[in-house]
Simulated assay, not measured.
Amino acid sequence: MLIREARPEDRPFIEEIARLTWDGEDYLARVFDEWLGDNFYVLELDGRVIGTAKLTVLPGKVGWLEGLRVHPEYRGRGYGRLLHDFLLELGERLAEEGKIGALKFATYFLNRGSVSMAQKTGFHVKAKFFVFGAKTEGFQPEKPEKIEPELSDLTLGLIPVGWRFVGRSEEALEWIRENAHFYDFNGFRFLVSKKGATFTPLDVGLATLKAMLPAIAWVAEERGRESFDVMLPSGIKPLLPGLRRLGLTLWDETEEPNVLVFRKRLV
């Protein structure tokens, strides 16, 4: 058994793991080339890659943990915890080098394995969000205007960019410009990571969301997606009935925030 950096020849194994994760909707295969050489690791067993793990340095000296996967045939044997602990050790080394000061990651609230590992290894819930799903066919798509964001556009204290979350700062603004597209539609603004379909509205009232959803659907459709997700802060909980009337549905129809952002301080 060996944990090592991912290599180009690992692609078939990564594609297989992605195909068997989240009903084939996993993003891992799409970011494979981008992640190579950037703290992207695999767990190899008897010459076969059976797991993956990634640490991405985000603005604010944050080590973001992501891409932790174990092939379905090997789950329940402790390999996920092995990869998690490996990332913690890597984070400690990066902290000693002054490159990061904390570790963070986000997970779905029903991902009990990840939640349990977080709680056992010193992580605490830093923030909560709702992620909603919607079908593009439920809207009459309207084209928004792509713009360059300014710091004043970042109206949320913690900003979701896909399933990564960054704090509001000039450094974060530059990172968002590199990793996301920013749109304006009749004065209402939203962003989406360059390769994803999870959107972040920067205004979260019912009326503004109703106005933005056709534009969000347009961008999703342009990316060849039949559905899209919308990430909203936990404070919108009182708006849940209205959001459902707009065509947004919660995974598992929970009444509580279903995305948990964990943090572990290192220095």
Rank of each mutant, 00 (worst) to 15 (best):
L248V: 03
K143A: 14
G224F: 01
H71N: 04
L65W: 00
P12V: 09
M212N: 05
L173I: 08
V31I: 14
H124I: 15
D26W: 05
S169F: 08
E73F: 13
P72Q: 09
L202W: 08
E171I: 10
T155F: 13
D46V: 10
K237H: 02
L239N: 00
W175E: 04
T136F: 05
G37V: 10
L202E: 07
R168K: 14
I50A: 04
V125Y: 10
G235K: 09
L43E: 08
L213H: 00
E174C: 03
G101D: 14
A18P: 04
D203V: 13
H181N: 15
V49W: 01
F262V: 00
L36R: 01
F130G: 02
E89S: 15
T121W: 11
R245E: 15
F228E: 01
V70E: 07
G113F: 06
L246P: 00
P8K: 07
L266I: 12
V115F: 07
V259L: 11
F190N: 02
L43K: 10
F199R: 03
G37K: 03
I176Y: 04
E174F: 10
G63E: 00
P160S: 05
V166S: 01
E15W: 05
V125D: 05
D46R: 12
E142D: 08
V267N: 14
W64M: 02
A134S: 13
P8Q: 08
R7C: 13
A207K: 12
G113K: 11
T121F: 06
L266Q: 04
N186V: 08
I14V: 15
W251Q: 10
Y79L: 06
E15F: 06
